[in-house]
């Protein structure tokens, strides 16, 4: 086409500072990002190898997604809202020298650093399905420990009814936090019985190594029977509280994202359907399962509850 001939391009180079030009290219690249055309280039070698057991009780034997898929198709708005943004901006998350504070209604307040997180607990690999509220899914081999082993250390008081989680706040470095897309920092919460369910996991690794930044390094929650956004990334604080905690997406649009947000094909999102999902890497769609296929472990948590009202 005439408008994109060589002459025009050269001319544009003359008048545009290269820095802006490159930046614009990056913006265009992320705007046109497509999950099937991915070259993952930011898997830096800073991830440490972990030693762990393999869990057989809770893990699925479905085919896991590749490390490339898991690290290049992410929702992590702190690092940008495009699917590839978290990979492209991964280095903007300063995840070294991490401190995780555990406080609130507990006997033992704790502060764990990055080293404690991988050494204090017996790590195991669990292969879980992950179902995003946007109707796509993956199968991921997480490495971590049950949240309840952390809860046992902290010894919550009898009046602790909920667990609240808070993610990193770093407006200076995190590109997504420069705009008020969400009410930063990102927060999530679980009911105490959900938190001590053996499925609920604190992940510190993926595919044998510590977590890549775009997957929520160095420590994140995994709640496989709930939509992915409940599984908060890069946690700095876990508090035990007596009232239902604030959850960021619930706060953003209470009619669209409930406190529970259990995976449920019978309750649609007001603007799109939750009946089906696209497994990343697969052709076509597959049916979504109630509680993401984990009913056996969790449906006793919600007996006598109307899941249509408590979505």
């Amino acid at each position: 086409m005439k408008i994109f001939n060589k002459y025009n391009l050269d001319k544009e180079n003359e008048i545009t500072d290269e820095k802006y030009f490159l930046n614009r290219r990056k913006i265009m690249a992320s705007a046109f990002a497509f999950p099937f055309l991915i070259n993952s280039n930011s898997l830096v070698a800073s991830q440490k190898k972990l030693s762990f057991n393999k869990d057989l009780e809770y893990s699925t034997n479905e085919k896991t997604n590749t490390i490339k898929q898991i690290t290049s198709y992410n929702n992590f708005y702190e690092l940008g809202t495009g699917k590839r943004d978290p990979m492209l901006n991964a280095d903007k998350l300063k995840s070294h020298e991490w401190k995780l504070t555990i406080d609130g209604l507990v006997e033992n307040s704790l502060i764990l650093d990055s080293d404690d997180l991988i050494k204090k607990f017996q790590l195991e690999e669990r292969i879980y399905r992950l179902r995003c509220v946007e109707a796509w899914s993956m199968v991921v081999p997480w490495i971590g420990f049950e949240l309840r082993s952390l809860i046992n250390l902290a010894k919550p008081l009898y009046n602790a009814k909920y667990v609240s989680f808070e993610s990193i706040l770093d407006k200076e470095n995190l590109p997504g936090q420069k705009r008020n897309i969400l009410n930063w920092p990102y927060k999530e919460g679980l009911r105490m019985d959900e938190a001590i369910n053996p499925l609920t996991m604190i992940a510190v690794g993926l595919y044998g190594k510590t977590l890549p930044n775009q997957n929520g390094s160095p420590v994140r929650l995994i709640v496989p029977w709930k939509y992915g956004f409940k599984s908060i990334k890069s946690i700095v604080k876990i508090s035990f509280v007596d009232q239902k905690p604030t959850c960021t997406w619930n706060e953003q649009a209470p009619n669209e994202y409930g406190f529970y947000s259990n995976v449920n094909p019978y309750v649609d999102h007001p603007r799109w359907t939750q009946k089906r999902e696209r497994r990343i890497g697969e052709f076509g769609k597959r049916d979504t399962l109630l509680f993401n296929g984990y009913s056996k472990f969790v449906d006793n948590l919600y007996t006598n509850m109307d899941l249509k009202k408590n979505f």
Partner: peptide, 20 residues
């Protein structure tokens, strides 16, 4: 359509229920 494997049931239920 391809993404829905040309499944008539899926496509119709989308058409009936989804504004977008």
């Amino acid at each position: 359509l391809l993404d829905n494997s040309f499944n008539f049931k899926y496509i119709m239920s989308d058409l009936i229920s989804l504004w977008f």
